[in-house]
Design a protein around this nucleic acid. Structure first.
Lengths: 144, 144
DNA sequence: TCAAAAAAGGACCGGTTGATCTTTTACTCT
DNA sequence: AGAGTAAAAGATCAACCGGTCCTTTTTTGA
């Protein structure tokens, strides 16, 4: 449902967001280490996040990635949409292209509500929220 | 989260289960048509379902796939476990290998409850339930 | 006992996704 | 202006998944 790349991307975004108040910028290498992800791949994902204006980047010396204030209020669903595309939360559990309340697959009624809850959770949760918890130390980005 | 193959497999199992009372057996070709899936691939999946005793098969002329009575009470989660492996419902949304209530990722509390609901829904829903709805015509296996 | 029917099993192909490498572009400081 | 640094961009590589094909095994009815 959520790709590996998207998971890295969420972690990266949360890490960067958590440092937004410091005004610091972070290089790819540093971010990759911090979230335990392959650096080259992380660079690709950051590129996409930047293109979707979920994080901001600056080239050159003293450049790097950072979050502007308005970006902290973006919901994590924006990251999923940017990396995995919009369809994720609309897919049928049993793979029918046509699956709806009117033409449900056998699992539809069991699944649709849960899927919608998940979507709204992703919609309501912002980078600011997650970054806040991270700064408080309530929550982790690494496996240590 | 749930692979394409697994989706075909669930559809196939529900179709077979819905015919269990007739005592009929079904060939790969027929099943594949009924669930709109590629025949050769469907054969592979049915093989796995058979190996996990979710459906039963008989070789030779007049052979085919069918459900025994006890198999109707299997939960759909068994199919997911058979095809995609056990890990599916334990994965962390943000890709941490170590993610738990004690060492949560930033999304953990937002996600874990929903994921557990999903798991118990798959655990509680049996082939019999789904097959019943299908027989009643409340529910569909095809896109028509 | 033989031929046909059907599933089982293994080898293989192609595309997508995960991941890397190289070149180009942009910025900052001297 | 020029040198050095860091990200952007694109080409490329590799592994996995979705899917096919072909051969083998089992079963059955004539």
């Amino acid at each position: 449902m959520i790709s590996k790349g998207c998971k890295y991307a969420i972690r990266a975004a949360v890490f960067i967001a958590a440092q937004a108040d410091t005004g610091k910028k972070f290089g790819v290498k540093e971010i990759a280490e911090e979230i335990e992800a392959p650096p080259a791949f992380t660079a690709k994902l950051l590129q996409i996040l930047n293109k979707h204006k979920i994080v901001t980047s600056l080239k050159g010396p003293y450049g790097g990635f950072f979050c502007e204030a308005y970006q902290l209020d973006l919901p994590v669903i924006d990251i999923v949409n940017a990396i995995d595309g919009k369809a994720v939360f609309n897919e049928c559990v049993m793979g029918l292209h046509l699956c709806s309340n009117e033409h449900p697959c056998p699992m539809h009624h069991h699944y649709a509500e849960i899927r919608d809850n998940l979507e709204s959770s992703f919609q309501q949760t912002t980078l600011r929220t997650l970054a806040g918890d991270l700064s408080l130390g309530d929550v982790y980005l690494k496996n240590v």
